[in-house]
């Protein structure tokens, strides 16, 4: 299987270690991974803001970069959601349809496609609070949602529970949105920052040392809120833990 790695723009710029961990993890798992150097963004920021026509160039570029892969993997739920469910600023050619139906968020890819049974190199002797982004939770459905009363399941928790020494903290409102929301984070900065503050407090009160998430955008926002409020939490992407990060 030829795997194309997409590293979202904010991970590229602010969390390169998440991109590195994703790449190394996929390689450890025996995947042949390419990172097309001509990539930029999936188009989500423009499309989510209603400016769908402005997403067309990014979407077309994305297709050109990734149409030749059997699987397109990205350490971001919201980008995967965009490509899979909203990627319609450009004509729906065979190439576009291929890309949309072969795009995976990292956790889904590990859990559903590779069906990874264990991560023998991974050990993380810390208490973590899992933050499921709304993209992974309610769009990609990688975990059960509290509003639906469905039988509990969690793909990210399934993967993390294979990591030696890890412990979990359970916040009071586990699947409340953290308030990032893309451009919402600046257009509605007061609400966004307040939601983020409430989110990190909830995890901290539950005893978490780390917040772990499959989305670095939520992490970027929550980390900013925690640091401003002086809440001693650390933040880590699930790829880093699964790749054997030690601290």
């Amino acid at each position: 299987m030829k795997v194309g790695l997409f590293v979202p723009c904010y991970i590229d710029a602010f969390y390169p270690r998440v991109g590195i961990a994703t790449l190394e993890l996929l390689e450890r798992l025996g995947q042949q991974v390419d990172y097309p150097l001509g990539q930029t963004c999936c188009g989500q920021p423009m499309a989510n803001s209603g400016c769908n026509s402005d997403a067309a160039a990014a979407e077309a570029l994305f297709v050109r970069n990734f149409e030749r892969f059997d699987a397109i993997v990205m350490p971001s739920g919201s980008c995967a959601h965009h490509v899979r469910d909203h990627f319609d600023a450009i004509p729906q050619t065979d190439a576009v349809r291929h890309v949309r139906t072969h795009t995976y968020e990292l956790v889904e890819f590990l859990h559903d496609v590779l069906q990874v049974g264990d991560f023998p190199w991974a050990e993380f002797p810390h208490t973590v609070g899992l933050h499921n982004s709304c993209g992974t939770l309610r769009a990609l459905r990688t975990a059960s949602m509290s509003e639906l009363g469905e039988p509990p399941f969690s793909k990210p928790m399934g993967l993390l529970s294979k990591v030696r020494g890890i412990r979990f903290a359970t916040p009071a409102r586990p699947d409340e949105c953290c308030g990032f929301g893309g451009t919402f984070s600046v257009a509605e900065e007061a609400v966004s920052a307040r939601m983020g503050l409430d989110k990190v407090r909830d995890h901290h009160d539950a005893g978490a040392e780390y917040i772990v998430s499959a989305d670095s955008s939520c992490i970027m926002h929550q980390q900013g809120c925690a640091e401003r409020a002086g809440i001693p939490l650390r933040f880590i992407h699930i790829a880093e833990i699964l790749n054997g990060a030690r601290e």
Partner: peptide
Amino acid sequence: HRELPHPVKETFHAWY
């Protein structure tokens, strides 16, 4: 109401 993300040495693109 938030801190900015931390500076990094290089982008993923450059690292790659």
